[in-house]
Amino acid sequence: MSRTSPEQSRRIQIIFILLLIAILVALPQVIKSDSTINLAVYVLLFVSLASSWNILGGFSGQTNLGHAAFFGAGALTTRMLWLSGWNLFPSLLAGGLVAVALALLIGVPAFRLRGVYFAIGTLALSQILYITVGNMLPMISSLPAQDLAVYQLAPRYYLFLAIALFTIGAGYALINSRLGLGIMAVREEEDAAESLGVSALKHKLVALALSAFFGGLTGGAFAFYHVGYYPQLTFGPEWTFDALMMVYIGGMGTIVGPIIGAVFFVILRELLALNLAEMHLIVFGTLFILVVLFLPGGFMGVWGKISKALARQQ
């Protein structure tokens, strides 16, 4: 067996990625079934949400238990602005920025403390918003009749695709940058990183802001996609914990892990929900515990071990 050089394997990777993107772009043209496209929308939504959670949780090592706050803030802002007559893209951008503002509000005080304060703070923030939004906006938010008349699924699908690619690309660019090196150094050993000139607070805040921004964008896309939902829905804890589980299952701190985790999770959930109804929660809870206990690197960790073992055999 001839060994491939790094350049060759890199070229193969790029071709594979381009091919995958081409297939995803062609999908709505080929498949006319709305239910399949809807499933693909959910896959892309969770690819974005999990990848955005991973920017903070995986690269900077800070556990965010309130990502739903950013998703919900993005969704609420975008929905309100868009339905009030703004163009879609400024509405999405505003949604992302509101999520960033919210993130800094909790991050600036919480990151000055070490330990679990950030995890508790984010969880509290998202739950407060969940209850407050439920009380203040108890009515369902539906698209007006004239929008419903022209509703098309394909543009929604493409928006989710673009945001997923954007989020993944941003994560990739980040970990291959000076900033990303500093962020990972802080994750590994904060004292040593600071002794070398890396400001831990600043780097955590950058990771948090990016994570929140893409979480907010994803929420905005959801607001553009969904015909009618209670505004409270987007602040629900399941957005946080589903994304978190996907990252753990796929492989935290990697680019590919959250993607694999999201695809696996959404498709498996679909299959289980068809057959087991609400029982799928038990399946995922069990799966999550097993992964954390026995496969701390997730699927990507397993893959890394296999490829290492194969390399040794050669």
């Binding site: 000076r178 500093g182 990972m184 590994e188 050993e189 004292d191 040593a192 990183a193 070398l196 701190g253």
Partner: peptide
């Protein structure tokens, strides 16, 4: 540090690069 504090999950090269990128 008295008890060494390497960036355990990074490669040796990346460890040194942190000093290169953020130092004087």
């Amino acid at each position: 540090f008295q008890i060494v504090k390497p960036f355990l999950g990074l490669t040796a090269l990346e460890n040194v690069m942190v000093g290169k990128v953020y130092g004087r």
